[in-house]
Design a protein around this nucleic acid. Sequence first.
DNA 1: AAAGATAATAAACAGGTGTTGATTAATGTT
DNA 2: AACATTAATCAACACCTGTTTATTATCTTT
Lengths: 181, 181
Amino acid sequence: MEDRRKIRTKRVIKETFLDLLKEKEINKISVAELADRADIGRGTFYLHYKDIYDLYEQFENEIFDQLEVFYDNKILNSSFSNVEKFVELIIEYIFANKEIFQILIGSNKGIQNTNKFKEFFKKKEWELSKSINGEVSEYQKVESAFTVAGVVSVLEEWVIEGMIISPDELEKYLKKILLKF
Amino acid sequence: MEDRRKIRTKRVIKETFLDLLKEKEINKISVAELADRADIGRGTFYLHYKDIYDLYEQFENEIFDQLEVFYDNKILNSSFSNVEKFVELIIEYIFANKEIFQILIGSNKGIQNTNKFKEFFKKKEWELSKSINGEVSEYQKVESAFTVAGVVSVLEEWVIEGMIISPDELEKYLKKILLKF
DNA sequence: AAAGATAATAAACAGGTGTTGATTAATGTT
DNA sequence: AACATTAATCAACACCTGTTTATTATCTTT
């Protein structure tokens, strides 16, 4: 996967896709229109992606891979790794990349919900709790599902509503809530 | 809206749709196939619904309207109205109608997320908190978004995973969590 | 620089979408 | 029972989908 043509094509597809996402919801975007705008043959699109949603997913995956790299690097240099640190870092990253998250989460509305956010937090939550507890009780599983969904939903609503309150404010609130657990 | 033909047509469409949902995911269901199976003209479908997702939404709305009727009736005969009672009633209702919720939430996976569940809980949560607090602080809003998402997600995962733990067990866990707030 | 590999293309395919207009049939109202 | 309303149907429309085929262009390797 180092052929220049592939790289160029995928790049122009992603760029055009982002432009279109700014204009309309994902379910209104057709492969035909995208290919036309990107000046590639329609069939070429299918050489790289199953359909528009597949393109969306791969795009989303790339963003969250980047988020993970950022998180893992920062957390290594941190003396203590806990949920508080997680909240800090994630909020920092989202705020620094607000445009992309607004497009991603915004277009998410109305359709689709693999919910990468939830998956990501679940994974990190598990990595944290693994190091602490050996066995996990049924109750702990439910509690964990609860907090994960809670944090993710708060973050999502914060982004969707245009980040009206400051990152610091949000961080304070989330930490206060998580103190209860 | 009392024309027998309309009622009959919408009924057969909904029945056929449910059958199809048991067989495949919603994004694999075409209007053509549905119309064919239901023995109606394809154009007739569009007399009643915008597309398959519109049909899904209207169907979902009907289910949640029924849930609301159930809830409101029960809560009236209850001496105290609080989050605990909410949890009890919702779990009872979902469990009593598990087939429909499994199809609804199951087909939800992979696509779509208006999330009627969340909307419903939000609404009820607001009705409850309205009667208690006059002003709502920014923190309270965040806390409320957190608990709503938490409860809904726990319920959804319970349904998707096949309701492995008993309704009583789940109720106990959720109440224990909500005690913290 | 030439050869072999592979990505991009255009054209055609059967099928689906959502809409329209003309026609037929069923329904509610008087 | 006759009439006006309105639902259902059918065929046709332009357009989109996902796949395949043969052909051309562009890359990587040697």
